[in-house]
Amino acid sequence: MDVGTVNAPRLNKVTSLTFILATGPEQSDLPRIVALARAAQRRRVATTLFAMHRGVLSLASDDERTTALHHANCDLIGCATSADQFGVDLAALGAAVGSQDDHARLVAGATRVLAFT
């Protein structure tokens, strides 16, 4: 990655970062999100992850990284409809049972959104 060539000023006004995860384990987006959530924690930026579609499967299939998100103080919310569709127990993952209203709320309210969809 070429980010080393970018001299980005650090802006403190970004206080919240929302991740949207809709891809399954085959896309390897969950490890990327974990790394970014840890980086956000180091910068005291609050993070929330909303998982839907196969994103709930990504969480369910990787205990280690789901736990890592909790350790990074990343709030986890899963789409109840997707969890039902894929047979995922969100509560067992420590994720709140949510809806598309959470999706809309988080996208509207975060100062930055990264959508891994």
Binding site: A8, P9, A39, V45
Partner: peptide
Amino acid sequence: QLLDVVLA
């Protein structure tokens, strides 16, 4: 590094 770029 990536997050710094995103936040900036």
